[in-house]
C-alpha cells in the first residue's frame, strides 16, 4: 500500500468516525464538574490558609485574654476574636455551598439559579468582610501590642496618626485586589456552567 493509498483509506475512516459519537455527555459533565471544583479551589485554598491563621490568632488571644486589662482593650480583644472566628467560617461555608452544586443531577436552569444564589451569598460575605475588616485592622493593633509587647498602644496618639491612614490604604488596595481575583474566578465558574447548555 502506497502512502497516497493510505491517505485515501484514512480519509474514508475519518468520514466514518465523524458520524460516530464517542464522547458522552456524561464525560463532559464529569469534566466540567472537575474543572468547576478546581476553579473554586482557587478561592477556597487561600481562604483555608487565612482561616488557619485567623484561628491561630483567635486561640492565642483567648488564652491570653486576661492580659487585656482595661475595658477598651478587652472590647478590642472581643472584636478581634469574633472577627477571626466568625467571618472565615462564613466565607468557607459559602464557598463550600457553591462547590456542592451538583449540576450532574440538576437541570441546566436549576444549576444556574442555584449558582447565582450561592454566588450572591458569597459576595455578601466578602462585602461584610471588607467593611468589618477595617474595624478589625483598628481593633487588632492594640490587642497585638498588649499581648506581644505588654504596651497599651491606644495611648500612643502619634502611632494612630500614621497607622489609621496606612491601614485604610492597605486594606482598600488589598481588598480591591482580592475582590478582582475572586470575581474573575466566580465568573469563570459561572461560564463553565453556561457551557453545559450546548
Amino acid at each position: 500500500m502506497e502512502l497516497e493509498e493510505m491517505k485515501g483509506l484514512w480519509e474514508n475512516m475519518s468520514e466514518e468516525l465523524d458520524r460516530q459519537k464517542l464522547l458522552t455527555d456524561k464525560m463532559v459533565v464529569e469534566m466540567t464538574r472537575q474543572k468547576y471544583r478546581d476553579k473554586l479551589g482557587q478561592i477556597s485554598l487561600p481562604e483555608t490558609v487565612g482561616t488557619i491563621i485567623c484561628f491561630a490568632m483567635a486561640t492565642y488571644a483567648i488564652f491570653n485574654f486576661e492580659k487585656l486589662d482595661t475595658w477598651y482593650l478587652a472590647l478590642c480583644g472581643i472584636i478581634s476574636i469574633a472577627f477571626c472566628l466568625v467571618l472565615p467560617i462564613l466565607s468557607l461555608k459559602s464557598i463550600d455551598r457553591m462547590k456542592k452544586i451538583d449540576f450532574g443531577k440538576k437541570s441546566y436552569r436549576e444549576s444556574l439559579i442555584q449558582y447565582a444564589k450561592e454566588k450572591d451569598r458569597f459576595i455578601k460575605v466578602q462585602k461584610a468582610g471588607y467593611y468589618l475588616g477595617f474595624v478589625f485592622s483598628l481593633a487588632v493593633l492594640p490587642v497585638a501590642g498588649k499581648l506581644m509587647r505588654g504596651k497599651d498602644l491606644l495611648l500612643d496618639a502619634k502611632l494612630w496618626i500614621w497607622y489609621i491612614p496606612l491601614a485604610l490604604i492597605f486594606h482598600f488596595l488589598f481588598s480591591k485586589w482580592v475582590w478582582k481575583h475572586y470575581s474573575s474566578i466566580a465568573q469563570g465558574a459561572q461560564n463553565l456552567l453556561k457551557e453545559l447548555k450546548d
Partner: peptide, 11 residues
C-alpha cells in the same frame, strides 16, 4: 476523568 464515560469506546 470518568471510566463510565467511554463505555462505547470501540468504533
Amino acid at each position: 476523568v470518568s471510566s463510565e464515560g467511554l463505555d462505547n469506546f470501540k468504533m
